[in-house]
């Protein structure tokens, strides 16, 4: 098997007395969806943020596409191909859906330091953005201002923006949170097809989606990974059932 795209080793991060990440190691391989599940406050978002560079780990290392990420700014990590979505939608509220996605496509298409041509003029930049919106099924709402979009539509814009970056890997923090069942099902189908373009590290509470999508699952509880493996193993794992899944599936 080839080298993993993303490799985190021995990550530790504490906030005062709270150890939010407690020697976590995980990998993300080409073509896979790796789900990260765990109860509220387990440290899932904190882990994602260390990979994106928003937070700096106390110790441990992260490698992406064969290179260490240490010392790289979050924007440099994004340029290297780390696409991400935020747990709480973080879009440009006064911009249209299309403008939000165009912004994400810019770096690949020559960068933001161009001062003369209208950004929405026809051309490759706009094409990339429209294609990304189309993939998430939002082309009809391209011109709508984000502030006027529904919650579910905003989640779709987030995914479209992550796609427009031309990512080498995707970090999705609860992309289905707050979506209606229909939207969640549509997104599940989209992610299913996406894994071969860019592997996905998926934080998600929607267990239907997780068990349908994941090739591997890591279970995080109180900052530690208590189990890691194939979905069937995770489903049967008694520690996982006790800590998180309850007696459900």
């Amino acid at each position: 098997m080839s080298e993993p795209v993303l490799k985190a080793g021995g990550l530790v991060k504490s906030f005062g007395a709270v150890v939010a990440t407690d020697s976590v190691s995980l990998t993300l391989n080409d073509g896979e969806i790796h789900a990260l599940i765990g109860p509220n406050g387990a440290g899932k978002s904190t882990l994602i943020k260390q990979i994106t560079g928003e937070l700096t780990q106390d110790s441990g290392s992260i490698e992406f596409a064969g290179k260490p990420l240490d010392g790289l700014t979050p924007q440099a990590r994004a340029r290297a191909g780390l696409g991400r979505s935020f747990q709480v939608s973080a879009l440009m509220p006064e911009m249209s859906a299309l403008q939000n996605v165009v912004l994400a496509a810019m770096v690949k298409e020559g960068g933001p330091y161009r001062f003369f041509r209208p950004v929405l003029a026809p051309g490759p930049l706009r094409d990339v953005a429209e294609a990304a919106l189309d993939r998430v099924g939002l082309s009809t709402r391209a011109g709508a201002r984000v502030a006027h979009l529904s919650h579910g539509e905003r989640r779709q814009v987030e995914i479209a923006a992550a796609l427009a970056l031309g990512p080498r890997a995707l970090l999705l923090d609860e992309p289905m949170a707050g979506m209606d069942p229909e939207g969640a099902a549509r997104l599940t189908t989209l992610l299913e097809g996406l894994r071969h373009e860019a592997p996905i590290l998926l934080v998600e509470h929607d267990m239907d989606a997780v068990f349908r999508l994941a090739d591997r699952i890591s279970v995080l509880v109180a900052g530690r990974i208590i189990a890691q493996g194939h979905p069937d193993e995770i489903r049967r794992d008694p520690a996982v059932r006790a800590a998180y899944l309850g007696d459900a599936p």
Binding site: A76, A78, A90, L91, M92, L103, M106
Partner: peptide, 8 residues
């Protein structure tokens, strides 16, 4: 934060 996520 969104700008940063776009690599800018």
């Amino acid at each position: 934060a969104r700008l940063v996520a776009a690599g800018i």
